[in-house]
Amino acid sequence: MIVRIMGEGQVKLADSHFAELNKLDDELLEEMESGDGPGFRATLLALLDKVRELGTPLPDDALEPSELILPAPDATLDEVRDMLSDDGLIPG
C-alpha cells in the first residue's frame, strides 16, 4: 500500500504491518476522544515514525496514487479529527 505523510512524501508499506500500526491508531483515537493533547502528540509522532521505519520511501518524482494519507507531524488535534473515519486514520 502507498502511504502519504502530508508534507513529507510517500512510502510503500506492506499490508502485513497494518496490525501493528492499528494498535497505535487505536491509542491515538482514544487520546483524541479523551482530549489528551500530550498523549495525542506522542502517539501521532510514534505512528508516523513507525510508518517511516517499516515503509520504503518512494522517490520524490514518483506519481503513485496514495491509498492512505496521514497527517503531518505538526498537525493539530482538530486537523487530525477532520481526517478520521470510523476506523481512525488507518482502516481495519
Rank of each mutant, 00 (worst) to 15 (best):
F40Q: 04
M83P: 14
S34F: 13
L89K: 02
E67F: 03
K50N: 09
V11E: 00
A72T: 07
K23I: 14
D15V: 00
P73I: 00
M1G: 09
E33Y: 12
G92L: 05
L44S: 06
P91F: 13
I5D: 09
E27S: 14
P59F: 10
N22C: 10
L45T: 10
A46L: 14
V51P: 03
D15L: 07
P73K: 10
L44K: 07
E27P: 06
D26Q: 14
R81H: 15
V51Q: 01
A19H: 04
F40H: 01
V80L: 05
L58W: 03
E79C: 06
L63M: 13
E33T: 11
G7C: 01
D60V: 14
G37W: 15
E27F: 12
K12Q: 11
L77T: 05
D15F: 02
A46S: 14
E20Y: 02
E33G: 09
I69F: 06
G55S: 05
L54F: 03
P91D: 11
P91N: 09
A62P: 02
L21G: 06
V51W: 02
D25E: 07
E20R: 04
A46W: 09
L45F: 13
E33S: 14
A62V: 01
Q10D: 13
D36C: 02
D15N: 08
L54N: 00
E30Y: 11
S85F: 09
A75W: 04
L77G: 00
K12Y: 05
D74N: 05
K50M: 07
S34K: 11
E27R: 15
L29D: 09
P71C: 05
P65V: 12
D78S: 15
M32C: 10
L58P: 03
G88P: 04
G39E: 10
S16M: 10
L13C: 10
E20H: 03
V51S: 01
P65L: 12
G88E: 09
G9Y: 11
R41P: 01
V51R: 00
